[in-house]
Design a binder for these strands. Sequence first.
DNA 1: ACGACCCTACCTACTGGTAGGTAGCATGCG
DNA 2: CGCATGCTACCTACCAGTAGGTAGGGTCGT
Lengths: 189, 189
Amino acid sequence: MATLDTKSALLTEAETLVRTLGYAAFSYADLSERVGIRKASIHHHFSTKEVLGNALIDGYLERFSAQLEELSAADMDTSRKLLAYGDFFAGSLDDGLMPLCGALAADAAYLPASMQRRVKKFFELHLTWLEAVLREGAARRQIKLQGSAHKSALLLLSTLQGASVVAWALKDPSVIKPVFRQLVETMAK
Amino acid sequence: MATLDTKSALLTEAETLVRTLGYAAFSYADLSERVGIRKASIHHHFSTKEVLGNALIDGYLERFSAQLEELSAADMDTSRKLLAYGDFFAGSLDDGLMPLCGALAADAAYLPASMQRRVKKFFELHLTWLEAVLREGAARRQIKLQGSAHKSALLLLSTLQGASVVAWALKDPSVIKPVFRQLVETMAK
DNA sequence: ACGACCCTACCTACTGGTAGGTAGCATGCG
DNA sequence: CGCATGCTACCTACCAGTAGGTAGGGTCGT
C-alpha cells in the first residue's frame, strides 16, 4: 500500500514540477523534498529520470485517452463535444499549470528519444480523435469544415496548446476558454 | 570589432540553444564550445546567465517590433497583412527552432523575474499589434470579426504559438502556415 | 527468512560564477 | 621618440553547489 502511495505521490509531484518548471529544470532533490523521502530512495521506484519521465507521459496519455473515448461515445452535438474537449484540456490549467506535453515539447531537443516519441504520440492521439469528431460532425451537418478535417483538427489543437502558453506567459488563465469557444463557434454551422 | 563579433556570436548561438534545448537546459559550457572562447570569458560579455537571457529577449523584441511597425505601415489588405505576420513568425521555425518566447514561456516558473516580465511584454506587444490591425480591418470592412478584436487577436497569436509547438513535437514544420492561413481565411469576409 | 522500502553516505560530472593573470592595443605625457 | 598607464578580451585554475546515480545497510510486514 505504502508502495503505491509513494509511487503515485512521486508521479503526482513530478507532474506538477514538470508543468511549472519544465523537465530539465526540475530535479530529484526538488521531488524528494516534496514527497518526503530521500533523493536516493526515488531511484527505488524510478531507476532513472528518463523512466520517471516516460511513466509520467504514459499515465497522462492513458488518462487522456480514456476521457477521449468516453467523450467520443457520448451522445452529444459536435460543437458541444469539442467544447467539452477544450474544457478538460483547459481544466488542467485552472490550477495554473502548463499542459504536460506542451511543457515537454518546449525543451524537446533536450529530452531523451524515448520521451520524444511519446510526446509525438500524444499529439497524434489528439489529432486523430479531433479529426474523427470533425468528420462525423461534418457528415451529420452539425459543423461546416472550412478546410480538410485534418487541417481543422490541427487548428483546434494548436489553438488550445498555444492559448495555454499565452495564458501562462500573461499569467491569466482565463483567456483560454473564450478563445477556444470562439474558434468552435466559427466552425459551427 | 572583435568585441562586437564575439558578443553577437554569443547572442546568436545562445538563441539557437534556448530555442532547441530551452533556457534551463543550455549551459555556458555548451555556449563556449560553440563560440570558441572559454566558459569564463563569456562572463566578460554577459556577467550572468540572467543578463544574457534578458539581452536575448531584448534583441528579439527589438527586431520583432521593427518588423511589426514596418508591416503596420505597409499599404496592404488586412488578411494579407495577417498572413505576412504569420509568415515571419513561422519563418523562424523553418530552421527547426521553437519561437524564442514560446520556448521561454514553457519553463517560465524557472525564469528569473526580470525575464518573466520581458516575456510577458513580448506577448502583449504582439497582442496590441494584432488588435490594432484587426480593428482597422474591421473598420475598412476587409474582415469580419466574430468576437471582439481582443479575443480575435488572442486567437491568432495562440494558434501561431501552438502550431509551432505541435509542429515541433511532430517534427513537421510544414503544418504551421496552412493552419494559420485557414484561420485567417475564416476571418476574411 | 525474505523482499519491499527507505535510509546514510558517497560518487562523478557538471553547473554558474570568481580570482587572478596576460597579451595586445590605445592614449597621454615628458 | 620612449615609456608608463589603463583598457579590452581572453586565458587558466578554481570555487561551492547541485545534478543524476550507486553501494550497502537497517527496518518492517508477511
